[in-house]
Write a protein that binds this DNA or RNA. Structure first.
Length: 564
RNA sequence: UGCGGGAUCGUCUAAUGGGUAAAGACACGGCACUUUGAAUGCCGCGAUGCCGGUUCGAGUCCGGCUCCCGCUUCCA
């Protein structure tokens, strides 16, 4: 039976974008239809920031009965590749969204864009400019400096048409000429000071091949792509606010459908980098193993780390949509990761830092099976068996020779409960020559098999264990934040990005895990009891030689007093 | 010395044509329960950037100030 795990009725807040859209639907704008789009450039892997945009755009479409397009804004062949196109599609699907037939590429509009550029030339609204990049910059002026007209600004339509055709035909070298919109060289908005529409790049494009040697700029492409697709609400991040007047200018000059652009604040998360450029740097310089390194804030990295898709969706839904540029605590993401995994991940016993325990009153060579619940949160989760014997491993941190009062775990002369087994008492500590504890000599109470003592005596602590004889060796990768600084990617004077990395972002351990874990399925998640959530690495794990990634730790209620 | 956008608990958000004692979540602290020091439940902590104005009444409206972010790519 399904316990109605009531999603505690949180009052649904309507963010300002949803408000605008609700108003538009109510007023019958766009015929009451909603068409959104997620428009990544295929020049890198999607990260947590994109996840928010995906959830917003696809979510909006789902909520309003509209559609959301997936469009690749592939206007710069230099940085783009089909590898990225594929990973992006994988990531969107993994996140739980579907674009159906609505898959588009800006490069499919190159012909149309070219025709429109010709139209603007004919209308006297665009011209071919001979200025170099540096000259254009100089002519553009600055915030408090007037711009200067290009010497080519008043070229005749005929000459512009001729030159533009020759640009297209490859008669000029890269950077030799450009097509610019004729707007206003003194606009207070720099984007309107005759922006470039086309640049010459003799470069292979991942989809159009060598057909073109001139490529439309993003600014000249984006608004019209939205328009062509009948996008009603074009949602983007704050930095494009200043571009809106330019998109509007193009749309009006062309006299085509006018989507409404709405800007919201980009998602920032503590200790997390969301700059594609810097992420690429980490990958290229080998500071991580790849785009899907479990420490990466990429969707593929988080997936490999073991973050469930629903946790990402919950997180995005709960970070809010506003125009305030804030910084969300990573703890919020981890909350949803734990929340999801707590309900779905089976429990297992794994000893990450093993300490041997010998139970002196347990018969040598004997063993027995103990039963354990797979998931106490799930009544249907079932039970499994795990072997128990004379020699066990427990977590080194679960024993302390001189224990403080609040230490509920094992110490000399005191009892703890071995989860799903018996009470255990430590009698003697064995050390090596260096004084390091190597073994604990203990006794158990066979009367406490049910976890309770017939005489009613209580124990304060319950610890996990594995049978030494039956345990399986496993590699366990303990991940921590890539950047210790809350503001990841912030680089102090004289430092480089690599200098700001957390040196302890990965710690590899050889663990002893319960036998059932030997054949755990790649990608599956477990809660290692009292430790954290772990998943079987999809790349490096193999049956009998499991490799686990720590997804996130369990919250720890025990905080040793800092004072001695 | 420009243009555009912002500013509510430590953090992210609510308070939707001015109207209770500014609400929730996270974080933090405490308590209860517990065969996970988890989960769960309960309690606590804690904010309207500043100055003035309008009003019976202002987080919300008006004026001034301060601070933060973005913008001078033939990147997106």
């Amino acid at each position: 039976m399904n316990t109605p795990e009531s999603d505690k009725a949180e009052p649904e807040h309507v963010d300002f974008i949803r408000q605008i859209i609700a108003d538009d639907i109510a007023s019958g704008k766009n015929g009451g239809k909603v068409v959104t789009r997620f428009p990544p450039e295929p020049n890198g892997y999607l990260h947590i920031g994109h996840a928010k945009s995906i959830c917003l755009n696809f979510g909006l479409a789902k909520e309003t009965g509209g559609v959301c397009h997936l469009r690749f804004d592939d206007t710069n062949p230099e940085k783009e590749d089909t590898e990225y196109v594929e990973s992006i599609m994988d990531d969107v699907r993994w996140l739980g969204f579907d674009w159906d037939d609505n898959l588009f590429y800006a490069s499919d509009y190159f012909e149309q864009l070219y025709d429109w550029a010709v139209k603007l030339i004919k209308d006297g609204k665009a011209y071919v400019c001979d200025l170099s990049t540096e000259e254009v910059r100089e002519y553009r002026g600055g915030w408090n400096k007037e711009g200067k007209d290009s010497p080519n600004r008043d070229r005749s339509v005929e000459e512009n048409l001729d030159l533009f055709t020759r640009m297209k035909n490859g008669e000029f070298k890269d950077g030799e000429k450009s097509l610019r919109a004729k707007i206003d060289m003194n606009s207070s908005n720099m984007n309107l000071r005759d922006p470039a529409m086309y640049r010459i790049r003799h470069q292979h494009h991942h989809r159009t091949g060598d057909k073109w040697c001139i490529y439309p700029t993003y600014d000249w492409t984006h608004g019209e792509s939205d328009s062509l697709e009948g996008i009603t609400h074009s949602i983007c991040t704050l930095e494009f606010e200043n571009h809106r007047p330019l998109y509007d200018w193009y749309i009006e000059a062309l006299g085509i459908h006018h989507p409404q652009q709405i800007e919201f604040a980009r998602l920032n998360v503590t200790h997390t980098l969301t700059s594609k450029r810097k992420l690429l740097e980490l990958v290229e310089q080998g500071h991580v193993t790849g785009w899907d390194d479990p420490r990466m804030p990429t969707i593929s990295g988080m997936r490999r780390r073991g973050y469930p898709a629903d946790a990402l969706r919950d997180f995005c839904a709960h970070t809010g949509v506003t125009k305030f540029n804030g910084m969300t605590d990573l703890a919020l993401l981890e909350l949803y990761v734990r929340g999801s995994l707590n309900k779905t991940a089976n429990r297992a016993m794994a000893i990450i830092d093993p300490l041997k325990v010998v139970i002196e009153n347990y018969a040598d060579g004997e063993s027995e099976m103990r039963q354990a619940k797979n998931n106490p949160e799930d009544e249907e989760g079932g039970i499994r068996e795990m072997p128990f014997g004379r020699e066990l491993y427990i977590e080194r941190a679960d024993f302390m020779e001189d224990a403080p009062k609040k230490f509920f775990r094992l110490t000399v002369g005191k009892e703890v409960r071995l989860k799903n087994a018996f009470f255990l008492k430590c009698n003697e500590v064995i050390k090596d020559d260096a004084g390091e504890i190597v073994e604990l000599r203990c006794t158990y109470d066979p009367e406490t098999s049910g976890g309770k003592a017939p005489d009613g005596r209580k124990v304060k602590g319950t610890i996990h264990w594995v049978s030494a004889e039956h345990a399986v060796d496993a590699e366990v990768r303990l991940y921590d934040v890539l950047f210790e600084n809350e503001k990841a990617g912030e680089i102090p004077e004289g430092m480089e990005l690599k200098d700001t990395l957390n040196p302890k972002s990965l710690e590899v351990k050889q663990a002893k895990v319960e036998p059932s874990l030997a054949t755990a399925e790649a990608g599956s998640s477990f809660q290692f009891e009292r430790t954290g959530y772990f998943c079987v690495d999809v790349k490096d794990s193999s049956p009998g030689k499991p490799v686990f990634n720590r997804t996130v730790t369990l919250k720890s209620g025990y905080k040793p007093k800092p004072a001695e």
